[in-house]
Amino acid sequence: MQRYLTRRILALIPTLLGVSIVVFVVIHLIPGDTISAMIGTTYKLTEAQAEALRAYFGLDKPLYQQYLHWIWAALHGDFGYSVRSGEPVMSEILKRFPVTFELTILSLLIAVVIGIPIGVISATKKDSFIDIFGRLFALIGLSLPNFWLGTLIILGLSLYFGFMPNSGKYVSFWKDPLQNLKQMIFPAITLGFAFTSSVMRTTRSSMLEVARQDYVRTARGKGLRELTVVARHMLSNALIPVVTIIGIEFGYLLGGAVIVEEVFALPGIGRLLLQGISQRDYAVVQGTVLFIAFAFVIVNLLTDLTYVFIDPRIRYE
């Protein structure tokens, strides 16, 4: 196990290096650069002026030189500065990440607390009212685009309750937990709806799958109480695909839910990345993507480790 862990952690290095190269190539592949993005559309600079600015930011050097320069500094903990704000990229990321992290955790909580129980009940009481209602709920959750749901929630709240979850002034949890939750709960519900739906559906189908296994029949045959059968024998075995889905969605959300962050005006990492892309603020994009990738591979690793704890048959040598 320990050897496996060491190997996995060592394996993160090439992955992250790979990500850093891909992001570098990809962001430079997109036409337009920092300078043309700075210039904007309504009020324009000449090509000559733009060239001068390019030289100033070192954008006239060959790509591999720019990459080596950047990765060398990054290895020393220097991720460069944002052209836009002049702040170090790392401090921007660390300011934004907690927002996204909290949003992700909250929607995960919603998904697990609602999704798994309903999924279990739905499977054990197949075709009951709860089953039909739960599946319907899940289908609606999956079919509403979240920008759409977010817009509807904001419109409804402001029109009928004169309430706006977040009017642009984000307050951190440590400063004022109540105000913070007031701001975060609706975006979390927006994201959590679809999240809950996929968790619920996966739980249900996985439970139905497990219910047909011999050991479950054996357990029932032994005369164990239904609750014990469900909890001990079925649920623990049915959790693998659920954990997979949770891991995927969790990692995905950590990358920032751009549109929900925009709609609810939350200063999360997704917005930082989108702004970085549209401004061609290369240092910001590179730093942010690398950071998201890092968070992501860690979540993946944790997911894989969770398999071992849930299912003793899976062993990593």
Binding site: I30, P31, G32, S36, A37, T41, K44, A50
Partner: peptide, 8 residues
């Protein structure tokens, strides 16, 4: 950004 680039 792409648009501005082509515009210029």
């Amino acid at each position: 950004g792409n648009y501005v680039d082509r515009w210029l």
